[in-house]
Nucleic acid binder design. Sequence first.
DNA 1: CAATATATTGCAAAATATAGCAAAATATAG
DNA 2: CTATATTTTGCTATATTTTGCAATATATTG
Lengths: 257, 257
Amino acid sequence: MSFFIIFALMLKEERHNIILEETSTNGSSSFQLLCKKLAVSEDTIRRDIRELDSRGLLKAVRGGAVSVSRIPHHYREREHTDIEQKKVIAKKALTLIKNKQVLFFDGGTSVLELAKILPVDLNVTIITNSFPVANALEDHPLAEVIFLGGRLNKMSFATFGHETLKGISKFKVDVYFFGICSISPDSLSCKDLEDAELKLAMMQHSVKTVGLCTFDKLNSESTYFITETKELDILITEKDDPSLHTKPFTKLGIEIL
Amino acid sequence: MSFFIIFALMLKEERHNIILEETSTNGSSSFQLLCKKLAVSEDTIRRDIRELDSRGLLKAVRGGAVSVSRIPHHYREREHTDIEQKKVIAKKALTLIKNKQVLFFDGGTSVLELAKILPVDLNVTIITNSFPVANALEDHPLAEVIFLGGRLNKMSFATFGHETLKGISKFKVDVYFFGICSISPDSLSCKDLEDAELKLAMMQHSVKTVGLCTFDKLNSESTYFITETKELDILITEKDDPSLHTKPFTKLGIEIL
DNA sequence: CAATATATTGCAAAATATAGCAAAATATAG
DNA sequence: CTATATTTTGCTATATTTTGCAATATATTG
């Protein structure tokens, strides 16, 4: 085998396959091992891995690569990104909540921040499919929490599926706080089919929908279409001035906060 | 193995994975152990743990790290009473679980202990109304969790009410693990009306009911009647010998473990 | 309050990454 | 087939990151 490698140059494709296999079977792979095994320079492997990374087939890290399946996108990790922006958004959203209201909270991390800063004496009913949201309301004696049943997704720690959708359909709530994954002037979309179904159902069963969206997600699109953006009533970002970027949304009749 | 580790440098990501695994399986991990296990200096582990902490994947504490838990504190306190007995009960109960089964777990603390000691590779479906139980199954990739919707009781961190009962009625499961509050030869009872309704519903919708009961609760009664004790199929206590106290129950045809 | 254990800080050595470049391999056009 | 363009590869020099160590500070324990 090594005889072959030395004399017949290996195609880049073959190398890529071997790198991917090594990475996925071991969970990780190092430049050192790979450049010996494939008889090419470390630079070449580095470039290979960078390419495979950009194609999303593995994740390049210092010293090598790790398989993407081993990097669960845990909500606990998501929770910690852009935390300050999310807090600003949450404060703005809080001004929309009044006593006696019935609210939908989905599993978005900005929505979770909102749950965390709710005043303890607030007398509302919150209907959610998200464990972290429910946990955040632990010390709110007056806040009634209705949890939506269904199959538990251990990544986001929220329930999904037919049961959850059916649960949602039993209500018509005052406001839905919608954690936005991707928004463009045309469409609201997200990365998970079941999440998309859930968000649509919550929109359809609420009088008003408030989108919570960090600025970097404006004008982006994801795989799963939820609904047309114009269905949104209010859009909240962390920025103070409704600048250029939000104009296309105001045109749709969406109020910007 | 350590021979290998010494010569082949490990990627930081691999170390992180090992640290996370160690921390989540044991509940905690120490610098001392980790730096020996991973053959790096304590400083490196310290820095690793600090990084993982900032990402929210564990909590750095003096001397090491602890796993992050979303289980509310006051619940945890209740959890700690008679913990050793409950662990013994849980181990006995575990022998009754087979792959592919569908199970009801209620919100009892002995039942929670059972959830905690389930092998990670167990392939079962668990239907529960208890947040702590669902949380305990976070790292069990093969265990499907169906969460019962309903009104959240913030004391027990479990759902109750009409919705929950209706959710239960959609199933007929193999085994129900019943956390016993009070049991006499006549009746099963508990301190909360809604909990009583829930436990009865779970019994009615399972083929077999297994009662988990610390010895001090034998021959006691509480306010809310659930059903006749003879409906129970198996009764598990922490004691080894089916002594005098359990005779009245064997007479009813209940198997004692 | 002393004795011990654990943390923090700054630093230098080692490991790894990046950028620019030239040689080799491969592709393309005529 | 040749000449030219393009891509790939490995090398060098220069950043950057990671790591372990030592000195100092802080916390815990009896």
